[in-house]
Design a protein around this nucleic acid. Sequence first.
DNA 1: CACGATACCGAATGACCGTTCGAAGTTCGA
DNA 2: TCGAACTTCGAACGGTCATTCGGTATCGTG
Lengths: 196, 196
Amino acid sequence: MATRPTRPALRERYDRRRQGVVVEAARVFAARGYDQTTMQQLADELGIAAGGLYHYFGGKEQLLIAICDELMDPLLDRAQELLEQDAPPEAQLRALVRLWVAHVVAHRDHMLVFQQERHVIEHGDQWRGVRDSRKRFERLVEGLLDRLDGEPGIDRRLALSALLGMVNHTAQWYRPRGRLSPEQIADGYTDLLLGR
Amino acid sequence: MATRPTRPALRERYDRRRQGVVVEAARVFAARGYDQTTMQQLADELGIAAGGLYHYFGGKEQLLIAICDELMDPLLDRAQELLEQDAPPEAQLRALVRLWVAHVVAHRDHMLVFQQERHVIEHGDQWRGVRDSRKRFERLVEGLLDRLDGEPGIDRRLALSALLGMVNHTAQWYRPRGRLSPEQIADGYTDLLLGR
DNA sequence: CACGATACCGAATGACCGTTCGAAGTTCGA
DNA sequence: TCGAACTTCGAACGGTCATTCGGTATCGTG
């Protein structure tokens, strides 16, 4: 693996290209599966030789890690930013779910790869970072749910699991020109959780 | 691959052993991933030689198909049986979700493998059977939701997706001696869907 | 233009893995 | 107990694939 260029102009090009590789990898991995995709196939899709990939990534697994980071990091940032604001819990929940659904559908491929490779993420050694990000995001949602007013019609922990299930599952059926917009979907989930 | 024994006594032993292989395979695949598990590792867990596996299965992929069939077929049967009875839609929904959650937690490993290998199931040629089973089950649930009385507080299709997401996601967090029983979990989901 | 830094090529490598198959062991039924 | 059916073994095969690396083309810069 090459080192990141030192000169600013080149560094920019390098970063863009690297990012492009991640996005394409997410696409191909989501469609064919991580293990069933060869570096050769991925390189073909990108129009470069297989060896060229190692200019940007130390190996196949680093590529997978990059996909997951690109999925979790911005989501976590935005969620944190949102929750720092001072607003009623219900409004925050609605806003968070919107943000979350929007992120999921904008990164469908990343999300599908993330779900498919759950076993590596849970057990792998280099995966503590990704695991922690996921855990932290879940805790954010959990904390918000605890802050909701009113007696819960449903167990709070169960509501959290349900919400995680619904939203993440969205990646598997959402289509860009579908009947419902991401916002409508998100609001539907929120309404469901709040008993309408 | 050997043919199924003709003599009844032997056939019984053969079926039991084959079934044991499927269950163990589900366990190992769920933990390590299908592609990352070698036939050797699987055989080790079973205490037999790698070649011995081919006495029961034509190949690794057939094993995967067997896991999925073992998951979907009984679920579909029970659901169909339930829906043939004459009962109010709400009661049927509650019963169906109970049945479904119970099945998912009883076959957690099968379920996790099923989700991980989504891409093969969606695109593979030999997978039409499994695909059809899944589709048929979804249609059963969809039909039941349409039969619910009252104006829907949420889009019916979205409710279906949400339910699918919640229930299937259960496989990823449920633990046998957890705080909630499968029935409590199922009822929680149903309450959520019906607005409590 | 010229030079160094960067980007990519592509053949070679070494390891791994699913699958085969003939032989050996075991079990069943008569 | 004997033979046939069944089960398992385990070494060998053929193929695939991630990764390496020395060389070549391209690009930015002075």
